[in-house]
């Protein structure tokens, strides 16, 4: 069962990495980078909020079990030029999800590349900074054991 660890899994497709970053983008970040572009997109699906059942593994790496649900919002849009974009994220923020679908569609279309990569870079940097900060704060609470040696050396 320990073989369940997907360390050797193939690297994520580029689009999955991008969509993962867009799922973490704040509404402020999305608006700041997308609104100046004035892109129109037609809603194909959503934005709509629903449930995803989160799964864990027994013992951490064993058989899957259903842990509990999470709210997820998703949206699919089509640009005037026909490209389809998908957005999805935890929570109920419909506007952020719609904007992330537009960003995904623009990236698929290869349009506004500078603006999209600036958005992705901003999100990636913020997420990395927050994670590093949290890891450093946790590291400061690491126990340094020292042993009292008794008797003959």
């Amino acid at each position: 069962m320990g073989a369940m660890m997907e360390k050797d899994a193939p690297a994520r497709p580029e689009r999955a990495v991008r969509m993962g970053l867009l799922a973490r983008a704040s509404l402020t970040e999305l608006k700041a980078h997308l609104e100046p572009l004035g892109v129109e997109a037609q809603a194909v699906r959503g934005p709509e909020t629903g449930l995803v059942m989160l799964r864990g593994r027994i013992g951490g790496g064993g058989n899957a079990f259903n842990l509990g649900e999470a709210t997820v919002t998703r949206a699919t849009v089509r640009l005037a030029t026909g490209e389809i974009g998908h957005g999805q994220r935890l929570g109920t923020d419909r506007e952020a999800t719609r904007l992330s679908a537009i960003a995904d569609a623009l990236a698929e279309a290869g349009r506004h590349e500078a603006a999209i990569s600036a958005l992705l870079r901003a999100v990636e940097e913020r997420v990395a900074t927050e994670a590093a900060r949290q890891a450093e704060e946790t590291a400061a609470t690491r126990v340094d054991f020292f042993t009292m040696v008794r008797g003959e050396d």
Partner: peptide, 23 residues
């Protein structure tokens, strides 16, 4: 509230071994 929402599906099993540890 959850009974008012549609079910989109199931996640991949989460990997607690890759957790960003807080404690």
């Amino acid at each position: 509230y959850r009974t008012t929402l549609p079910r989109f599906g199931y996640s991949e099993p989460v990997d607690t071994g890759a957790m960003r540890i807080e404690r």
